[in-house]
Design a binder for these strands. Structure first.
Lengths: 210, 210
DNA sequence: ACCTTTCTCCCCCAAAAGTGCTATTGATAG
DNA sequence: CTATCAATAGCACTTTTGGGGGAGAAAGGT
């Protein structure tokens, strides 16, 4: 039996949802509210297993809502449910740990499906949403990032990033400080930077190291 | 009409897939191979609209495959299709720009669905996969990361990351170099680091800046 | 055999960075 | 009113860095 809690400021839509879900033998709507101002108390009180959460609501919206819920009750599944589909909000929800993301144009059947799905550990989302999520992975992709650094140069740069001084790097690799200097000179030239700080920043931004 | 190209080293499975897809009125299997060694030539030759790509194949596997395809033909949709479901491979594929990710236990009907779906710009994946993808978003979440840096200290640190010298920072904010030094001293202490390189690395890793 | 790259090392020298102090001012919280 | 904090600034002193050279040995490719 799934215990559903609904956050949706549009009264009519909320009623429709309640009606729809009540019609299912294995679902029980334990509550419905128009904003997330008291979400913590309400979840504690009603102990839902799945929350349907609209994003755009007066007072505290769904983004704050999902964050609060997931921080205090990470075991409760939260399903975002919205007309808005801008990437900003989407990502904000996902980062806060939302378990799924539905657009309001989703059919009733699919909503039921999604609830079943999320309750069994899945992460339902429309293919549209999924595409956008994957998109963000791609942009994150490592750019060619071929600076032509030699293996040794990479090693030296790595220790520089760790905050080692030239002397420490030299000791680490059993080479002279002069050699370390040479490597760093070459590194800076190849990276088109003028000092260590810039090199460190650039290397990390290019994800040469983690 | 979708033009499908299949990469799958298991002959029997490949035949089954071909048979399944050929049965559809709007799909045409333009080819099938057991590895990705010549994927570029093959795609150029056969110009598929959707590629079904197994991950584990002798020779060049699907991960190299999807990467090659997406680099040379970003407009071709690639649907990964595999028994393996470890996060490493999954992420590698997604980063390379795979358009969807199916597990082999997926039913024939769902495979057809997924192809239609990916061809119309969606990103089909099993809820299971979707869950894992969302998971990676969560772990990426910004941690409180409160070092107690003051606004001014943040500004100074920001320029340091850009590779500015103390002198340049001082000039930028119309303060004396000594003041910059003071700020940096405090910054290093608060961050528990001993020099600029380490501070830059730590700041970027904590995503204090991007 | 010749060339290039990589890794190694050296010198000089100036600039920059880091450490340890002190100290004044203005704003703010208690 | 007082204590704290942020921001400012200074000085002395040491260490570290960065930029300019040059140069030799080993490895790898043509």
């Amino acid at each position: 039996m799934h215990r559903i809690l609904i956050y949706e400021d549009n009264e009519r839509l909320r009623s429709s949802l309640e009606l729809l879900l009540k019609g299912m033998h294995n679902m029980q709507v334990v509550g419905g509210f128009g904003n997330c101002d008291k979400v913590i108390e309400q979840v504690k009180e009603l102990s839902p297993s799945v929350i349907l959460m609209d994003i755009d609501m007066p007072g505290e919206g769904g983004i704050i809502g999902v964050e609060k819920v997931k921080r205090h009750f990470p075991e409760v599944f939260v399903l975002m449910f919205t007309v808005f589909d801008d990437d900003e909000r989407l990502m904000a929800c996902l980062r806060s740990g939302a378990n799924g993301y539905l657009l309001k144009k989703t059919s009733p059947l699919q909503i039921i499906d999604a609830i079943e799905n999320v309750a069994s550990g899945g992460a339902p989302m429309t293919p549209e949403i999924a595409r956008r999520v994957l998109e963000t992975f791609k942009v994150e992709r490592k750019i060619p990032s071929d600076l032509g650094l030699t293996p040794r140069e990479m090693q030296v740069l790595e220790l520089l990033i760790k905050g080692h001084t030239y002397k420490m790097i030299a000791y680490e690799y059993k080479i002279s400080v002069e050699t370390v200097r040479s490597h760093l000179k070459n590194i800076y030239e190849k990276m088109h930077v003028n000092n260590g700080n810039e090199a460190v920043a650039k290397a990390l931004r290019m994800r040469l190291f983690e």
